[in-house]
Design a protein around this nucleic acid. Structure first.
Length: 568
RNA sequence: CGGGAUGUAGCGCAGUUUGGUAGCGCAUCUGGUUUGGGACCAGAGGGCCGCAGGUUCAAAUCCUGUCAUCCCGACCA
């Protein structure tokens, strides 16, 4: 491609809307442009990268035996109504009506449609197992689109669905996708971690997420360098830790704590440590209210708690007026003693003695409270969120935490959708079996952003060869120097002839501009034709390395071809 | 959905307090000089000042409403 003809509107200054590195660079390098909140256009360079990622995903899915097909994005409501998800998705689904007032939505994910496709088109048990996939635009009306294409309302997703007749079959299908995902993210040169995840409302028995560690990631992950354990915060099991407590069988005592609402204020007021307190937090679980107790320096894990309570809707903090009604006190003084709703206590509370809790009376706390003696919880379980330094649930060594961008997610769905929609198969013995499903997603456009987030420097993007929009740029230093231009043209043609995706910077710009653009858009290798052109010497430089090397033209072309082929 | 902020040229911003001809830098176009890390000189084009009402002789500026965008939080199958 000749850069004089390339639609590549690079920006010197960063648009004010961009906050994180990948978003800034994707805008500056002319990869994407925002059309509306969470809705982006892909310009030529961005599209080339996106297509390359798609292609890698496609190759590995095909290699794993999955078959590609394409569903519509505009979907009639029926399928989602049958599975109940028309309501479950609620506001996060783009819903619309046709001219006859019939309900439609823009597909947020396609479990129902794939299930229906198998019902409609698979006629014999002999066709199983089967894994189908598509690479398609997905639509989710996010409450808060963020970070460019990392959380957008329209995005490209690869979604795959496996159909098996046995649990063992599901395990195999799942493993095949797991392996394919590892190959995909390796080929994309993403530094990723696989974590155990909560299966959430997708249902099912197991799930893992592929996370790219990054400070801008929206998920917390806990991992252990010693044994390899890794899990999403939502899922990571917590080992209760003992802390110093006041010893002895002390009588419970009510104390006056005026205007002291938070743990921090209490710590100062009572001259105790945060871990000597137990906080009691009231939640709305569907139509009921419950209380959750965790140590003062811990956080309630709402996902764990929700799974434990078994409610349909997500937990919500109880409204202040409800808190007042249930505790007869202002917010900040809730405690388990005398509380008339189910109390879920974290396992750690069990290990504590003579701790401090709210007294369900404004400006009052109890001290020397003991579980079992002063109150009895409805359930004691692991309901807190893991933190850095906690014991690894597998090997007991200190665990580390990080933020991660979720680029892939694999689920064992089980029979949730096949049951709801009636996908069964008659086996050879005549038995009617409900088909067992798995689902597997990759955020293609999110991978693009994750890659930029992971591969950049102060000058711009540093693409891995496999997904670079172009592989080598050829830069004649002076566009008015015929000798340089001629040599650059020749190099460019030779690269093309060798199957290298080359860019020729034939713009009449000063060299600085060309170098800056080449670096900004992240072309992996560069050949500069300059002063020593007459001697047949050019300069060869890799984007990821600091210094350029002078060498004869033929050697530079050879080096570039070799580098590209070895790193594809 | 709660809290905060911002809407002025393609991008970054000033001007709004105290109403009076809409500005600066970059980018773009023309001509010239330049040519190894975002050149210089001269000239030019480009604006419903987010939108709609209102106040006023006069509104980017004041008032009301509305829309949009971003940030923090909530939510995220």
């Amino acid at each position: 491609m000749r850069m004089s003809k390339l639609l590549m509107p690079t920006l010197r200054e960063v648009p004010a809307e961009a906050e994180i590195t990948s978003h800034k660079l994707m805008l500056r390098a002319g990869l994407i442009r925002k059309l509306s909140s969470g809705i982006y256009s892909y310009l030529p360079l961005g599209l080339r990268v996106e297509r390359k990622i798609e292609q890698i995903v496609r190759e590995e899915m095909d290699r794993a035996g999955a078959q590609e097909l394409l569903m519509p994005a505009l979907l009639p409501a029926e399928a989602y109504q049958a599975s109940g998800r028309w309501d479950v998705f609620g506001a996060s689904m783009f819903k619309l009506k046709d001219r006859y007032d019939r309900d439609y939505c823009l597909g947020p994910t396609h479990e129902e449609l794939f299930t229906q496709a198998v019902i409609d088109n698979v006629r014999s048990y002999k066709e199983y197992p089967m894994t189908l996939y598509q690479i398609q635009h997905k639509y989710r009306d996010e409450g808060r689109p963020r970070f460019g294409v990392i959380r957008s309302r329209e995005f490209v997703m690869k979604d795959a669905y496996s159909f098996d007749l046995t649990e063992e079959g599901l395990d195999e299908s799942y493993k095949a996708m797991y392996d394919a995902y590892c190959r995909i993210f390796n080929r994309l040169k993403l530094d990723f971690t696989i974590v155990d995840a909560d299966s959430g409302a997708m249902g099912g028995s197991g799930s893992q997420e592929f996370m790219v560690k990054s400070p801008v990631g929206e998920d917390g992950i806990a991992y252990c360098d010693f044994c390899g354990y890794a899990a999403n915060f939502e899922k990571a099991e917590c080992i209760p830790t003992e802390v110093d407590c006041v010893e002895g069988d002390l009588a419970m005592e009510k104390i006056h704590t005026p205007n002291v609402h938070t743990i921090e204020e209490l710590v100062d007021f009572m001259n105790a440590k945060p871990y000597n307190f137990v906080k009691t937090i009231l939640y709305k679980a569907d139509d009921k209210y419950i209380a959750a107790m965790v140590r003062g320096d811990r956080d309630v894990n709402e996902v764990k708690l929700k799974n434990l309570v078994g409610c349909t809707d997500d937990l919500e903090l109880a409204e202040p007026h409800i808190v007042r009604q249930l505790t007869n006190a202002e917010v900040g003084f809730a405690g388990p003693v005398g509380l008339d709703i189910p109390v879920y206590a974290d396992k750690e509370v069990e290990l504590m003695k003579n701790f401090i809790v709210g007294a369900n009376e404004t400006d009052m706390h109890y001290k020397n409270v003991n579980m079992g003696r002063d109150f009895t919880p409805h359930t004691v379980a692991d309901i807190r969120t893991i933190t850095s330094g906690d014991a690894c649930p597998k090997c007991g060594k200190p665990i580390k935490t990080a933020q991660g961008i979720e680029v892939g997610h694999i689920f064992k769905l089980g029979t949730k959708y096949s049951k709801a929609l009636g996908l069964t198969a008659q086996t050879e013995t005549g038995e009617e079996k409900t088909v067992i499903m798995g689902c597997y997603g990759i955020g293609v456009t999110r991978c693009l952003a994750a890659s930029v987030e992971q591969n950049n420097d102060e000058n711009g993007i540093i693409w891995p060869v496999a997904i670079a929009p172009y592989e080598v740029s050829v830069v004649p230093v002076n566009a008015k120097n015929d000798e340089q231009v001629k040599m650059a043209e020749e190099i460019y043609e030779k690269l093309l002839a060798n199957g290298v995706e080359a860019l020729l910077d034939d713009r009449d710009e000063r060299p600085g501009v060309k170098f800056k653009d080449s670096d900004l858009i992240g072309v992996p290798a560069r050949i500069v034709v300059g002063k020593k052109c007459g001697e047949g010497i050019v300069e060869y430089k890799l984007r990821g390395e600091a210094n350029a090397v002078e060498m004869p033209v033929s050697e530079a072309i050879e080096s570039a071809c070799k580098f590209i082929n070895e790193n594809k």
